[in-house]
Nucleic acid binder design. Structure first.
Lengths: 110, 110
DNA sequence: TAAAAAGTTGATTTATATGGAAACTATTTG
DNA sequence: CAAATAGTTTCCATATAAATCAACTTTTTA
């Protein structure tokens, strides 16, 4: 039987990442994972802003910055301070939760 | 009856904060809430480090900084970048979860 | 399909987070 | 209690996040 002989190769997404980007813990992989998170963060600002039916200019006015700054936070996001994140999501009336998971227990900030 | 006449005054912690620090949305209150969060973050680094039985020096070596830098993150914390937070908790093998709560739905980063 | 509105990008400035070095103050331990 | 270890603080340099302005591109709408 074909299916028996074929020795199907299956891979999880993590296995693919390990192979193509690098193992967890290597600088390349850490870099990748970080950039991914920053991208998600940027997209999140954008989607919440849209949810609130605000333009970048309007959101900028709420926190006292130019629309170009908002654009950068949504797209160019390399690294951000917590303060900036909180300022933005505060203005968007969204609640930011930040938690640290340590084996069993969950410690919560904010 | 004493208890009936006395008109007991009760206050929630939030009411106290509103009165003594300022209403939510005022610069004073926002500042206060932010500093509180930073303090909690610092304490969290410290407690997770202790959990792992590491000295500041050892944690520093894991991420390539001096012990004084760790001390600052644990105590003097005014503001931090996401990158720094992730670097530290990564080294402590703790999982950082960051989520944005928008009315009903929860959007998750990381 | 123009004009207006919204969003992006690049060059630049300013503010500040990150970091080291060293001297100091606890805290621990033999 | 003295020495060693751990943690803090101050002064300082450097890297970079935050922000503006202006010119540009993309999208929307009258």
């Amino acid at each position: 039987m074909a299916i028996k002989d074929k020795k199907l190769k299956m891979m999880t997404l993590d296995q693919l990442k390990d192979r193509d980007i690098g193992e967890v813990g290597t600088p390349e992989r850490d870099q990748y994972e970080f950039e991914l998170k920053m991208e998600v963060l940027g997209n999140m600002i954008k989607s919440v802003r849209k949810e609130r039916h605000l333009t970048q200019e309007q959101l900028g006015q709420l926190i006292g910055v130019q629309k170009s700054q908002i654009s950068k936070l949504e797209r160019n996001t390399k690294n951000v301070t917590i303060e900036t994140i909180l300022k933005v999501f505060n203005a968007l009336k969204a609640n930011v939760k930040f938690s640290v998971q340590l084996d069993q227990s969950d410690l919560n900030i904010a």
